[in-house]
Design a protein around this nucleic acid. Structure first.
Length: 503
RNA sequence: GCGGCCAUAGUCUAGCCUGGUUAGGAUCGUAGCCUUCCAAGCUACUGAGCCGGGUUCAAAUCCCGGUGGCCGCACCA
């Protein structure tokens, strides 16, 4: 198998060639890194992932909302992103090398008390400690901030920002949710939408984008309900591939399959409701085609956690291009966000518990769609001596069925066209292909992961059957014409397996 | 952002050092012929020197700047 870097080139080459994604966008003007276009197949695949995500959330009683992607500055002051989302940077006055000021100070002082200095204080500290550019030994300039949010203006002069996450915009609706949910907590909502991060220098293609689609599910919940979460009963015997931080601290990277009830007992999870969120994230990723073989749940080490996070686990996916890739965060955000918005907006963000106002906590599942999209491509790629193909689970495949006449003769073309129209009308994404040899057409479909191909041959004219060919085994069975549409639907949904037809 | 390397059809690539004809090949694609199930063959065709500037009679080729990619550093809520 190709090395890691080469493998990424295989995947992105295939993605470009067959229309999964293109970029950096806008290509004809040279492109800006961190931006990609989805081609027809990529968009289909993304839609499938999103619909898996949607139905998982809806089945778990979450309600979908959609908020604007631009919000005025006050929102991001309140959320902490205007301060916390900034990197304090200092630049060499001579060679323009850029350093992260807080890291620099920490390295040179070994003094943990120096966290949280202001910009001016950091500038002074660098001078005091005599820190110079490690490349050319020249003086460093004043500490400035690089904000990871993209700034814009509303009207003539109101500062505003593109949202760096959808979560905050969801929290702003809390009062409305209380009415909608008739004052009952826990209340669960989710949002799928664009978010923007002005990364200094994004690399690794689809894995670090400046504009990407975020999925964020939120549960507004009171503390006692976090401890008493009935749905946990349903999953207590489910085993998840876990890597807790206690295990990692012992220098161990070994994932173990742990029953959820066991994980709570061991103290990996403090709260059953939070543990359930980790399970839900896992379930969503299983729906997106990942398995215990290529997925793990890793708990953040204490120093990895974000400004709002009381506990944090990630879903990580193993790829052949980049090793383990962090794809989803499950956060216990406490009541940090609602408290802050209450403070800044002067609006009540609490509910009454025993006549006392209580600001509820938030549990969050957050991920970008593009990462699992890439990981799925990466994990689905297969090749042997004669062909390469994408072994998408049939329900996720962008193109679901392809229809061919065995040869481009009118007597086969016409019935093949009719079948194509019927299958297309039935709601499957279907392609018709009459070009080149039959083998070549199978290979084309293999390369984009189409799970089933239907071929109309001369026998079809006699006995009204067609052959259905399976992508992974390359085997084929004859199916009666009148059963074709229904059979294809079952195959694509995965309610029957091709192997069960093959006898 | 910094440094090193790099940029030619959809994809892979030759030519660049040593400036000079219609920028060559492979593959993919398209149309047709042939072909009764896994990239066969034949014929024809489409399609390219990242962008901008400079040097020169002449630039894919030399020089400068920008953009993008890879690697290292830094960054990645």
């Amino acid at each position: 198998m190709a090395s890691e870097r080469d493998f990424n080139e295989v995947i992105s080459g295939l993605a470009k060639k067959r229309g999964f994604y293109w970029g950096p966008s806008p290509e004809i003007y040279g492109g800006s890194s961190g931006f990609y276009d989805l081609g027809p197949l990529g968009k289909l695949l993304k839609n499938r992932l999103e619909s898996v995500i949607r139905s998982s959330f809806v089945r778990s009683n979450f309600w979908e909302v959609e908020c604007p992607t631009v919000s005025p500055e006050i929102v991001w002051k309140a959320s902490g992103h205007l301060d916390g989302f900034m990197d304090p940077l200092t630049q060499c006055t001579k060679c323009d090398q850029v350093y992260r000021a807080d890291n620099l100070i920490e390295e040179h002082s070994n003094d943990a008390s120096l966290k949280g200095l202001s910009l001016d204080e950091m500038t002074k500290k660098i001078e005091e400690l005599g820190i110079r550019c490690s490349a050319c030994k020249s003086e460093l300039g004043p500490v400035q901030q690089h904000n990871l949010m993209l700034k814009t203006k509303l009207g003539l002069d109101q500062d505003a920002y593109m949202r760096p996450e959808t979560a905050t915009t969801t929290y702003l609706l809390f009062k409305r949710f209380l009415t909608f949910f008739r004052d009952k907590l826990p209340a669960s909502v989710f949002q799928i939408g664009k978010a923007y991060r002005n990364e200094i220098s994004p690399r690794q293609g689809m894995l670090r984008l400046r504009e990407f689609t975020q999925v964020e599910g939120q549960i507004f919940i009171l503390e006692e309900d976090e401890m008493n979460w009935p749905q946990f009963e349903d999953i207590k015997d489910v085993e998840l591939p876990l890597l807790a931080y206690q295990v990692q601290e012992k220098g161990n990277e070994k994932v173990s399959m742990v029953k959820m009830s066991e994980a709570v007992k061991k103290g990996y999870f403090q709260k059953p409701a939070y543990a359930w969120c980790v399970w839900l994230a896992y379930e969503i990723f299983r729906g997106m085609g990942f398995t215990n073989e290529n997925m793990r749940l890793r708990q953040h080490l204490l120093n990895e956690r974000a400004h709002y996070a009381a506990d944090a686990w990630d879903v990580e996916i193993q790829t052949r291009s980049f090793g383990w890739v962090e794809c989803c965060g499950i956060h216990d955000r406490g009541n940090y966000d609602l408290t802050r918005h209450q403070e800044f907006s002067k609006e009540r963000m609490s509910v009454k518990v025993n006549k006392q106002p209580v600001v509820p906590n938030v549990l969050e599942i957050a991920f970008g769609v593009e990462r699992p999209l890439f990981c799925l491509l990466d994990n689905s790629y297969a090749e042997d001596e004669e062909r390469n193909w994408l072994k998408f689970p049939p329900p996720l495949a962008p193109v679901q069925v392809a229809i061919f006449p065995l040869m481009g003769k009118p007597e086969l073309l016409t019935p093949a066209q009719e079948i194509f129209n019927a299958v297309l009308d039935s709601g499957l994404v279907t392609q018709f292909d009459r070009g080149g040899s039959i083998g070549r057409r199978y290979r084309r479909q293999d390369e984009v992961g189409t799970p089933f191909c239907v071929t109309v041959d001369y026998d079809s004219l006699e006995d009204s059957t067609v052959t259905v060919r399976d992508r992974d085994s390359m085997e084929q069975v004859r199916i009666k014409r009148e059963e074709l549409v229904e059979t294809l639907h079952k195959l694509v949904k995965g309610t029957i397996l091709f192997a069960s037809l093959a006898k």
